[in-house]
Design a protein around this nucleic acid. Structure first.
Length: 341
DNA sequence: GGTGCAATAT
DNA sequence: CATATTGCAC
């Protein structure tokens, strides 16, 4: 007599889920469990974390474990996991007495997937609204701070600038000083498709007669760059989503991001396929075993939005700790290769 | 307070 | 090297 308890919300819960394949619980603790507790900061404006974790935060497997569909606890109840250990100092006393405030978060590792999410957010927000705060909110990744986004955005802009400057490898005339500076960013940014409207030509670009084309994209300032005809439908959703996100800046948790945008990466004249992790493994997940050179290879990312992000554990890299976020979709499609060499 | 950007730090 | 942090102007 418990099967028919309250099928109402319960049933709806399942209905809400597209498919276990596409949707996974998003809210994970970004910071290490222990850190979270130690932190337990008074809800910073930039820190949506906190005790209110609506999402069940499934087992935080430090290693790659399949999400499995073992009935996600439908209960919205607070499902927080305490930190079993973490240098709380010998007593393990409650948080608060320790100067946790001085602790630093691990560096965020921008994986291709995370960056993809970033780009999508920016793309759908439009250049105008693509400011750190908004982007951060739309991305809806727990623990992601405005600073994280701002820093990344800054680099991303430089990257775009560089792209515009070098249409096809022209060199020399222009700003040589710029190229060298941000050359490093290429790797990451190259993993994600750059929406065409992002590459707005300079306002003073030498152009012939472009006046007719309203959507041509000559005016980066005033025009709505990103609305393309075919994108309208989606844009509606996006606008709504953006509005929602903007409206409820206070409770980002209940907002589920939208992940139906996977087509904006098609440049006119042919899309280029991008293989994400074929070139490098994000720090933190490489060599699970460390023996024989086993690695993680994504067989197919389908190109569309995989799913929500799952969090990897902070990995200790040398002397600093890095935080790695990766999509759960990856896990499903991920294949552990036996050996590479 | 938020943003953008350059410089600087880790 | 990739991010983070800072300083400054808007």
């Amino acid at each position: 007599m418990r099967e028919e308890d309250e099928p109402n919300w319960f049933a709806r819960w399942e209905e809400e889920l597209p498919t276990p394949d596409e949707l996974m619980p998003l809210s994970q603790t970004l910071i290490t469990p222990g850190l979270a507790v130690a932190f337990d900061i008074p809800t910073s404006p930039t820190d949506p974390l906190g005790a209110s974790r609506p999402r069940p935060t499934p087992q935080p497997p430090p290693h790659l474990s399949l999400p499995q569909d073992d009935t996600p606890p439908p209960a919205p109840p607070a499902h927080q996991y305490d930190s079993p250990e973490l240098g709380a100092g010998g007593g393990g006393s409650g948080p608060g007495d320790e100067p946790a405030r001085t602790l630093k978060r691990p560096r965020l590792v921008w994986t291709p997937q995370l960056h993809k999410r970033f780009v999508d957010a920016v793309a759908h927000l439009g250049i105008k609204n693509a400011v750190p705060k908004t982007i951060m909110q739309l991305m809806n990744v727990d623990g992601l701070t405005r600073e994280n986004v701002a820093s990344h955005l800054q680099k991303y802009r430089l990257y775009l600038k560089r792209m515009q400057g070098l249409p096809s490898g022209a060199a020399g005339a222009g700003g040589p000083a710029l190229a060298a500076a941000d050359a490093a960013t290429e790797h990451l940014f190259a993993s994600a498709p750059v929406p065409h409207h992002f590459l707005s030509r300079g306002p003073a670009v030498p152009r012939g007669g472009e006046g007719t084309g309203a959507g041509g994209g000559g005016v980066p300032d005033q025009f709505v760059p990103f609305v393309q005809v075919s994108a309208l439908q989606h844009h509606q959703q996006m606008a709504a989503a953006a509005a929602a996100a903007a409206a409820q800046q206070q409770h980002p948790h209940y907002y589920h991001h939208q992940r139906h945008m996977g087509h904006m990466g098609s440049p006119p004249g042919g899309g280029f396929d991008h293989g994400y992790l074929m070139r490098q493994q994000p720090a933190g997940i490489q060599r699970p075993g460390g023996a024989g050179g086993a690695g993680i290879v994504a067989s197919t990312l389908t190109g569309s939005y995989a799913g929500d992000l799952d969090q990897g554990a902070g990995a200790d890299v040398g002397r600093r700790k890095e935080l790695t976020l990766f999509p759960t979709g990856l896990q499903r499609d991920a294949v552990i290769t036996g050996s590479v060499g």
